[in-house]
């Protein structure tokens, strides 16, 4: 465990908690893509099936349970508890265009052709693009609440820190996982445009709104 890995995990946790608290405090999930949140729940479910087969550490196990629990709590809030505030009309990204090709790719490009490994690979590929419905929704409405942008910032920062972690691990441990690295690079690139807007607008106290 190096500093990039730890801060990456904490950044990921911060993002998840910020989103949950935003929905809970405002009693509203306006501006949040339920589709992205379903994809993230699917990502955690397919990736952490190894909870049933192997024990890494107390840290590892607890974080997995927290991520899965929070992901389903978020989906529950959007599609059940605060359903009336969910802006489904703007959440129109066609997720089957992501899930189906990624399922195929996970079958074709993986480390080992076994069920758990294919599901893990699927989760890595899916995570890299799971934010697209949310970004699509923002581009459609042309704006995002500031708290939503903080969520996106920490979520993007997390994978960028993991990239640093992988560079660290390559140099100091000789460890590298090509599938995770390539997907992680794709995932981080998807946030670059957003990072730019976050720094130039939100951090200067302005609301994130896109030109019409």
């Amino acid at each position: 465990m190096n500093i990039f890995r730890l801060t990456g995990d904490l950044s990921h946790l911060a993002a998840i908690i910020i989103l949950l608290l935003k929905i809970w405090k405002t009693r509203s999930c306006a501006g949040i893509s339920g589709k992205s949140q379903i994809l993230f729940a699917l990502v955690f479910t397919t990736r952490y099936l190894d909870l049933l087969t192997s024990f890494i550490s107390l840290y590892n196990t607890s974080m997995k349970f927290i991520y899965i629990g929070c992901a389903y709590a978020t989906v529950y809030m959007i599609y059940a508890k605060f359903k009336a505030t969910y802006d489904g009309n703007h959440d129109t990204f066609r997720v089957e265009f992501l899930v189906v090709p990624i399922g195929g790719l996970a079958f074709l490009v993986n480390h080992d052709f076994s069920p758990l490994e294919i599901l893990w690979t699927f989760s890595i590929y899916l995570e890299s693009v799971a934010i697209l419905p949310q970004l699509f929704m923002i581009s459609k409405t042309g704006e995002a609440e500031t708290i939503t942008t903080h969520y996106l910032f920490f979520l993007g920062l997390y994978r960028a820190l993991y990239l640093m972690n992988w560079i660290w691990r390559f140099y100091f441990e000789g460890f590298f996982d090509m599938i995770a690295i390539v997907a992680g690079v794709v995932q981080t690139i998807l946030y670059c445009d957003f990072f730019y807007l976050y720094v130039t607008k939100v951090l200067k106290g302005k609301k994130l709104s896109l030109p019409a």
């Binding site: 192997s54 890494i56 590892n60 460890f175």
Partner: peptide, 10 residues
Amino acid sequence: DSATTEKDEL
């Protein structure tokens, strides 16, 4: 290529 067994990352 790399570890297919133990996934210590999240």
